[in-house]
Simulated scan of single mutants.
Amino acid sequence: MPHEEGRRPAGALEAEVLRVLVAAAEPLTPRDVLARLSAPLSYSTVVTILTRMYDKSMVARYKDGRSFRYAPLTDESSVAAERMSAALGAGTDRATVLRRFVAGLRPGDEDLLRRLLTDDQG
């Protein structure tokens, strides 16, 4: 699906905020997160993203004076796996969805997937 010029793909900001939180040694304030992001965002945008992530149980929120600190409850791989599972569940023909997913894999990913499935069996 094409994106408008300058517009990020869905979930891209959440993924970047999550990367910042996972890399931190302690819970961060929204201002701390803003300072560590590569994307030029406003403070209110960061607060909105963190609030949405809290509502989705992606982060924990701790009261710190008049503000909050946030810590990750998940990682980027888990979020991607959940999105893949949701996309699979949205289709009516799971076999066709999986077949088209596998057909779109990068070189080497199909072999990796096969190894992962074999390892889980044994």
Score class of each variant (00 low, 15 high):
T74V: 15
V17T: 05
A24F: 09
A25C: 04
L112W: 05
R61I: 03
E14T: 03
L98V: 03
R36N: 06
L88F: 15
A35Y: 00
S38D: 13
R66H: 14
P107Y: 08
E14W: 00
L21G: 05
L117E: 09
A15K: 01
Q121D: 10
A25P: 13
D32N: 09
D119F: 12
L34R: 11
R7Q: 05
Y70R: 07
T96M: 12
V22R: 05
S57A: 11
G89R: 15
L21H: 07
L116M: 14
L88R: 15
A23F: 04
R94Q: 07
A25N: 11
L21P: 09
S42K: 08
R19F: 00
L98F: 06
L113V: 13
F101M: 13
R100W: 08
S77C: 07
R66P: 13
L73W: 06
Y62E: 15
L18H: 02
K63C: 03
E26L: 06
V102F: 13
S78E: 10
A60C: 12
R115K: 10
S78D: 09
S57V: 03
L117S: 11
G11I: 03
S78Q: 13
A39G: 00
V22P: 00
S77P: 06
T51C: 01
P2Y: 02
A39L: 08
G91V: 01
R66L: 10
A15T: 04
M58C: 07
T118S: 07
M53Y: 06
L34I: 05
A39I: 05
A86H: 12
V79Y: 10
Y54M: 01
D119Q: 08
E82S: 11
P107Q: 13
D55A: 14
V22L: 02
R19K: 04
V79H: 07
R61S: 14
P2Q: 12
A86K: 14
V17P: 00
G91M: 04
A80E: 14
S85C: 07
D120E: 07
I49N: 08
T45Q: 15
L18P: 03
R19C: 00
K63A: 14
V59M: 00
A23C: 02
E14H: 02
R66S: 14
L88C: 14
R8K: 10
T45R: 15
A39M: 02
M1Y: 04
T48H: 09
A23W: 07
P72N: 05
Y43G: 09
E4H: 08
D55L: 14
T92Y: 11
